[in-house]
């Protein structure tokens, strides 16, 4: 679906749960089979609609975690304890259940297979989800675009996709992984151990001359710090694309 040309209305589609994988204590990945899914670009999101027996409905938006894969898509959902939708998705949903999806949505925060230069992915917490879709899409395409992922999580156990990221980076000199663990670090930890600040960004971010685009996704204070930090370091604001993950409502 290059160019995200959507003709006509994005219809609600029935999506059958085909797989549920725990990622961390707070997040699960849910795989759906969605007949009629028009395909997506890495970084796009999807609307989710739940319907109660009395007809009450709730909708939320989630980033797609998976690369393009026919009629299958995966969402990674962080459980928000006081949320209305996310606890249902993470705790209640079982393989074989059906919910509704509508998408893909968003044509801006998306992986560009023709990017010239280095792509910088910066994720805070579950903000890594659309960036993971990009890393997966990049791998699926066999892309050589130099890509660096800076991933800020609270602890090592809060790192979503840890094994897969390690695997992706191990087999690919073009993909760099840099972690910062803001709350606790395992013994012998050699990565960063603080919130992303200007000094950290200066060390990790590609130089302005080689940056193709930066994708920044996370909670608002994280995105504000990273995006303004990149501008302070001399990056062109138009090359810094942001997306926010609020813990709101969920």
């Amino acid at each position: 679906m290059e160019g995200a040309a959507v003709l006509g209305r994005l219809n609600w589609l029935e999506a059958e749960v085909v797989e549920i994988r725990p990622e961390t204590s707070q997040t699960k990945t849910i795989g759906f089979e969605v007949p009629g899914w028009p395909g997506h670009r890495a970084g796009q999101h999807v609307d989710v609609r739940l319907t109660a027996e009395d007809g009450y409905q709730a909708e939320r938006t989630y980033s797609i975690a998976s690369a393009v894969d026919d009629s299958r898509i995966e969402l990674t959902v962080e459980r928000l304890d006081d949320g209305e939708v996310s606890p249902y998705l993470t705790d209640e949903l079982r393989p074989g259940d059906t919910i509704e999806l509508r998408g893909p949505v968003g044509g801006y925060f998306v992986w560009d297979p023709h990017a010239q230069g280095t792509v910088f992915l910066v994720g805070g917490g579950s903000g890594v989800v659309p960036l993971m879709a990009m890393a997966r899409q990049r791998a699926a395409e066999g892309s050589k675009i130099p890509t660096r992922l800076l991933y800020s999580a609270r602890t090592w156990d809060d790192v979503i996709y840890r094994d897969e990221l390690t695997r992706l980076a191990a087999g690919d000199a073009g993909l760099d992984l840099v972690y910062t663990l803001t709350r606790a670090q395992p013994p012998g930890w050699e990565g960063y151990g603080r919130r992303v600040d200007l000094e950290l960004l200066a060390e990790v971010a590609p130089a302005p001359a080689v940056l193709a685009v930066a994708f920044v996704c996370g909670p608002t204070p994280f995105v504000e710090a990273v995006a303004s930090g990149l501008v302070q370091l001399g990056h062109v604001p138009a090359r810094v694309k942001t997306e926010r993950f609020g813990p709101t409502g969920g």
């Binding site: 029935e14 409905q57 209305e84």
Partner: peptide
């Protein structure tokens, strides 16, 4: 264009009650 009519009842999400 819409295979599902707006007034058609969408599938029930098993076990979802929601916060009315």
């Amino acid at each position: 264009q819409d295979p599902k009519k707006e007034d058609e009842m969408p599938p029930i999400s098993r076990g979802f009650r929601g916060r009315h």
